[in-house]
Design a protein around this nucleic acid. Structure first.
Lengths: 225, 225
DNA sequence: ATTATATACGACAGCCTGTCATATTACAAG
DNA sequence: CTTGTAATATGACAGGCTGTCGTATATAAT
């Protein structure tokens, strides 16, 4: 999280930093990017950077959360839009997400994000637990917020026609779905590039196939419990 | 891939490097680890390191592939063991994998691996495609080998009772399964630690639940096509 | 013995991070 | 308007790390 000082800065200076972040993190992954480059791009002295942010990651996730294309609330909205239908809701969400990720104004940023993000960071999207010891107070708060949002989302799901017995299972199902979403996006970056639209179309089809498996089962024949 | 020189080295010296890799990569993630540390541990001059390996990653993946706990062949064996049953085969595989990862001699290495590996590197387990331009000849070969192994594995699956129409869909299903495996392992690192055995037990149960969803569908009631 | 080839070695250029002492500005209180 | 305090700005710097390169040494072949 940016420090107080950053938010007290004139908007124009803040924007310079955000622009620099976009440029640098579109060109390089979080790992490859350097503060040296960012301060050069934003034309601020190196010392100042550390007055605004803890480190590279701090700026990165601030930038990322400002785009906020992966929001629990968005998923929740999609599910509510379809009367609590978990699967239809998620397909709707996936369609808009994939569109943004592959054809929106931040394609390059997303490319680096999804190719290089590690599993641990995945928890910034769907929090696993609060068990991590070395977590800053800020992160602790963030996690708490995420968990609240998650509970909220969970509550919006109509479970009457789902084979899900407990809330714990429902959360498992949600996380399973999220991992399918991430894997699906990722596979998009490896498709032969005949044009973004085709890739998007193919991804949506494949996602549907997967969701259908999950909905109705991969086994043929009668459903037995 | 290590350079020729490395393989011509006396076994003892090779071992020193492998040991150093284990120590360093158990203490730090690939990202945090440093060659400086490794050469200090192995007691070889820095210059020599570059005579044996391209870089840090080179040693890392050499070490990793020497453990080889995640092998297409292992999965194939498990599936064959159960007469081509994809799901039973995978559950068997998962059980032995999770055991190795959480209680085997390389727990710390695996911890860093699974928490910090990025999605792109995931392709070293289940290759996505050959489309990556900036791929070395070596990697190209590796990918080809992986793909061959994958085809082989795919052929061992009995699809007669699966709702899978094409080979392409079968590969999709396999990859879906792999992403569930990774996500499952990962979630293990966030569980309250009441002891490894309990975590392993819980993970296996959760994996079963997920597989059951995938087998029979999350939707209740009659199965419709 | 001589020469070519493979290996060993550590100094070094170049890059990066996070900090710190110092300079500058903003602002409140007298 | 002046003075003191807190906030902000700034770039030099210590300490690390990577990959390379010139030189030294060993090995083998003739």
């Amino acid at each position: 999280m940016p420090k107080e000082t950053f938010f007290r800065l004139p908007k124009e200076k803040q924007q310079r930093l955000i622009d620099a972040a976009r440029i640098e993190f579109s060109k390089s992954s979080l790992q490859e990017a350097s503060i040296a480059n960012i301060v050069k791009l934003a034309d601020i002295p190196r010392g100042s950077f550390y007055q605004y942010f803890e480190n590279k990651e701090d700026l990165y996730f601030y930038y990322f959360e400002n785009l906020r294309s992966i929001r629990t609330q968005d998923i929740e909205a999609c599910i509510k839009e379809h009367d609590g239908d978990f699967f239809i809701g998620f397909e709707t969400y996936f369609r808009q997400l994939i569109e943004d990720v592959f054809t929106g104004p931040n394609v390059d940023f997303y490319r680096n994000l999804f190719l290089h993000i590690d599993f641990k960071a995945t928890n910034r999207f769907s929090p696993e637990s609060m068990a991590d010891d070395k977590m800053s107070e800020y992160h602790h708060q963030k996690m708490k917020k995420h968990l609240t949002e998650l509970k909220h989302l969970i509550a919006a799901i109509d479970t009457s026609s789902l084979n899900v017995k407990t809330e714990r299972e429902l959360i498992m199902l949600f996380k399973l779905m999220m991992s399918i979403v991430f894997a699906s996006i990722n596979s998009g970056y490896y498709k032969q590039k005949r044009g973004k639209e085709l890739v998007v179309k193919e991804l949506i089809e494949e996602f549907s196939t997967k969701i259908n498996w999950l909905k109705n089962g991969v086994y043929l024949g009668e459903k037995g419990e």
